[in-house]
Design a protein around this nucleic acid. Structure first.
Lengths: 85, 85
DNA sequence: GTAAACCACGTACTATGGTCTACAAATGTT
DNA sequence: AACATTTGTAGACCATAGTACGTGGTTTAC
């Protein structure tokens, strides 16, 4: 079984944002988040809280559960192993 | 429009956990999270990251998107206002 | 009653979410 | 080429996610 430490949103976030032809700066403005933070999310350096998921989804025009559903598809077959046990 | 600062998972989390007749400690063990942290989530003192949502959903036997869908239903009509603008 | 399970709650601590400023490196446009 | 737009990246900073310890209070069962 494949193991990962965290759920990362970079691929999904970038894909949706590009499909909406939106820049990081525009997404940052619409979600009232920082542009450099959006960049970090897309490069999988940070992971968002549930509130940030809601903000991003709203700004991208889809439901948070739809966003999360795309994450599920990406991480099918993976289990999360906690490093700090 | 009703405004909130954060998405809180307390009500949904507690409801699902109780419906599965699971204690906080058992949920903590299954999700490899701390029991007192589960307690804080249920009392809306902390908000989880997306990884924690996945861990909790897995432990509770539902899909993360289903968990988030329940949150959506709870927060229909609410907008998130950022305090730290 | 008393034991045992469950949970609220406090405090202290480490790790990381998220902001902000600034600059470099791509990428696109003409 | 030159210019504008977009994105990567670093470093400092504050707020909070998450752990770990304890204590006390409530419920359920014997």
């Amino acid at each position: 079984m494949n193991e990962i430490e965290n759920i990362t949103v970079g691929a999904v976030l970038k894909q949706i944002r590009k499909s909406k032809k939106m820049s990081q700066e525009e997404l940052a403005h619409r979600s009232s988040l920082d542009r450099t933070y959006i960049s970090m999310l897309e490069r999988n350096i940070k992971q968002p809280t549930i509130t940030t998921i809601f903000l991003l989804s709203e700004a991208l025009g889809l439901k948070p559960s739809e966003f999360v559903n795309l994450l599920e598809d990406e991480f099918v077959g993976y289990t999360i192993k906690r490093t700090t046990v």
